[in-house]
Simulated assay, not measured.
Amino acid sequence: MDTTLSIRDLSVRFAQGSVRAVDGVSFSVSSGKIGIVGESGSGKSTLGRAIMRLLPPSASISADCMTFGEHDLLRASEKDMRKLRGSVMALIMQDPRYSLNPVLPIGRQVAETAILHKGMSRKEAGEAAAAMLERVRIRDVTRVMQSYPHQISGGMGQRVMIAAMLLARPRLVIADEPTSALDVSVRGEVLELLDDLVCADGSSLLLISHDIRMVAAFCDRIIVMYQGRIVEEVTQLRDASHPYTRALIAAMPDPRHPVRRLAVPDRAKLERG
């Protein structure tokens, strides 16, 4: 089964075409962990939502190619996309407080994936949800399944989101800032969990983040975006040569070499190219 994501010349526009949030992006993913980095407003999250076809009606999407295996994501109907989302493609959102339904218990929300995409009965789905919650290292699964989102911590909520999104074993996982709302002590655990689950199931992972150092340590490839465009793609951060990438690296604090003031990207220089 072909599970290659192919993007060629993808653009996303808002405000009747006057604002280009994504501008001529091209890349492909067939396996492994790929990081997409850049500052806020660079188009990272818009790119992820465009792939999932989850942008608002005000967005205009165009591309020469946007396929996942045999599926044409650009021309697929909304009915077809609903079949793909959660089954072969999954999006892990940034903050579980805004992604989980506040009026439904955790167990029911996780089990919903198995009911919709695996055709399981409610009993079977509940058992599958419990097994998946154990797999994401949640203790006292019975209590958590009966709890509501406001009754669990942020780190546990993120694990619940991962469990819900990966229950159907999707072939492509897009994780949009999955650790930004978590304490530093929990971030490493969530990344390790994602790594274990994605590698075990043979899926591809697109990790969207502004934390270039974290992405460099975790991912196999790094795609750098600036003003809606991909400006560079590298496998090792030390090989980066584009002025914007170098500016992002220079702006990262380094406890080994403390400075009074962090470097700030020279916008005028970047605009000149």
Rank of each mutant, 00 (worst) to 15 (best):
residue 5 L to P: 01
residue 10 L to G: 08
residue 11 S to N: 03
residue 12 V to M: 05
residue 13 R to M: 03
residue 14 F to M: 11
residue 14 F to W: 14
residue 18 S to Q: 15
residue 19 V to I: 15
residue 19 V to W: 08
residue 28 S to G: 07
residue 30 S to A: 15
residue 32 G to P: 12
residue 34 I to Q: 01
residue 37 V to K: 02
residue 38 G to M: 03
residue 41 G to C: 02
residue 45 S to K: 09
residue 46 T to R: 05
residue 47 L to C: 08
residue 48 G to F: 06
residue 49 R to N: 01
residue 53 R to I: 11
residue 53 R to L: 09
residue 54 L to Y: 15
residue 54 L to P: 11
residue 56 P to D: 08
residue 57 P to H: 14
residue 59 A to L: 11
residue 59 A to E: 05
residue 60 S to E: 06
residue 69 G to V: 13
residue 72 D to M: 05
residue 73 L to S: 00
residue 78 E to W: 10
residue 80 D to I: 12
residue 80 D to V: 14
residue 82 R to K: 11
residue 85 R to F: 10
residue 86 G to Q: 05
residue 89 M to N: 02
residue 89 M to R: 03
residue 93 M to Y: 14
residue 94 Q to S: 07
residue 95 D to Y: 07
residue 97 R to Q: 08
residue 100 L to A: 09
residue 106 I to N: 03
residue 108 R to C: 04
residue 111 A to I: 00
residue 114 A to W: 02
residue 115 I to T: 12
residue 118 K to P: 09
residue 120 M to S: 04
residue 121 S to D: 14
residue 126 G to I: 07
residue 132 M to P: 02
residue 133 L to F: 04
residue 135 R to W: 10
residue 138 I to C: 01
residue 140 D to R: 13
residue 143 R to A: 13
residue 143 R to D: 10
residue 145 M to A: 12
residue 145 M to Y: 04
residue 147 S to I: 10
residue 147 S to T: 06
residue 148 Y to T: 04
residue 149 P to M: 08
residue 150 H to Q: 05
residue 152 I to A: 10
residue 156 M to P: 00
residue 157 G to Q: 05
residue 161 M to E: 10
residue 162 I to A: 01
residue 164 A to M: 14
residue 166 L to M: 13
residue 168 A to L: 07
residue 169 R to M: 12
residue 173 V to A: 07
residue 174 I to G: 01
residue 176 D to V: 12
residue 178 P to G: 02
residue 179 T to G: 01
residue 180 S to C: 03
residue 181 A to R: 02
residue 184 V to E: 01
residue 184 V to K: 02
residue 184 V to I: 11
residue 185 S to P: 00
residue 186 V to N: 08
residue 188 G to Y: 02
residue 191 L to V: 12
residue 191 L to K: 04
residue 192 E to G: 11
residue 194 L to T: 04
residue 195 D to F: 04
residue 196 D to E: 12
residue 203 S to N: 09
residue 212 I to S: 03
residue 212 I to K: 05
residue 213 R to G: 09
residue 213 R to F: 08
residue 213 R to L: 07
residue 216 A to C: 06
residue 216 A to G: 09
residue 217 A to Q: 13
residue 219 C to A: 15
residue 219 C to S: 13
residue 221 R to Y: 00
residue 222 I to V: 14
residue 222 I to D: 00
residue 226 Y to N: 04
residue 226 Y to D: 01
residue 226 Y to L: 07
residue 226 Y to W: 14
residue 227 Q to P: 02
residue 230 I to M: 09
residue 231 V to W: 11
residue 231 V to Q: 07
residue 231 V to H: 05
residue 238 R to Y: 05
residue 238 R to V: 14
residue 240 A to H: 09
residue 248 L to P: 01
residue 249 I to G: 11
residue 249 I to C: 09
residue 250 A to N: 05
residue 251 A to L: 00
residue 253 P to Q: 14
residue 254 D to E: 09
residue 255 P to F: 12
residue 256 R to N: 13
residue 261 R to F: 05
residue 270 L to A: 07
residue 271 E to I: 13
residue 273 G to E: 11
